[in-house]
Amino acid sequence: MDWHFSPTTGSPYWLERATSLEFDPRVDVKSFEDLTLFPNVTNELRDVRAQDLIPQGYGPHPEVIGVFESGGTTGAPKRIVMLRDWWDSELARQVAHLEAQGLPRNRNWLALLPSGPHMAGALLRSQAAAMGGVPFTIDMDPRWVKKVIAAGNADEANAYAEHLIDQAAFVLQTQDIGVLWTTPPLLERLARRDDLVELVREKVQLIGWAGAHMDVDTRQLYRTEIFPGLTIVGSYGSTMVLGGAPERLGLTDEDPCIFDPPSPYITFSVVEPDTGRTVPNGERGQVVMNHVSKSFLLPNNLERDMATRMSPLEGQVGDSVADVTPVQQFDNETVIEGVY
């Protein structure tokens, strides 16, 4: 807190924002629990000048990897700045985790993930390189899909998604791809095409998924029926925490899909949506994410996900989460007329 709120090292954004806080972060925030004192400022990241997010402690020439943006599901995108030191440490953690999952080095990667200003695509390129592989990518603009879906144009959304799979097909057919990263909806589309399933079975050793939700039954179908013998691992993260939580090692087909965040930098809690109180272990609630590192501070960010609160790994701060799903859209039971 000293780093982020000291006039010499803090970012212009947080120093300005601190003037309207009802507490003094440097005095009052002493523990993980105290992060809940912060208001959820995530929405302000839609408008703030990106340079103002960089802590001044990095000096006049910080090494910026890139400016990354949220998906843009709800209006204007939110923006964060990725600095070299955090990027390197996040990369090292993820690579170590993949190696622990048995992923061999020197395999080529195919990332069917958002390109452009999104973090996932960029992170995957660096990971592939760090593991001695060559990254192959496709063009993918998730915002366009959301826009045409919102406009009720399901056919166009469908055509765009098939276009993404077509791009992947060319790479899978002609290149030696050992690692495939994608989103659950795209993996489902890929699995519809028998020829692509066959190619993946032949060539790929690990399928990683991120950026959406995969239920236990679907995960089990992939692991037992569609891609038996392949390693299939998930990652649950967010651009707003500058990274993610990998799937816990050694889970069986029957286990819930548990994600452990790299605390203390990225931490989760699972709360009742109405009260904000932490739910008991094993109960479902809405996910709150925190990022606290030297390069960035974003505490108390209520995500649009529900999850089961799980016991963390030893030494981990906060909660682990499992069975992540979107916040439910409750049907208001207004449908009454008619007999069906």
Partner: peptide
């Protein structure tokens, strides 16, 4: 309740 992926395969 079956997931979408199961439906895809059942219909195939």
């Amino acid at each position: 309740l079956v997931p979408k992926l199961y439906v895809t395969r059942a219909m195939a």
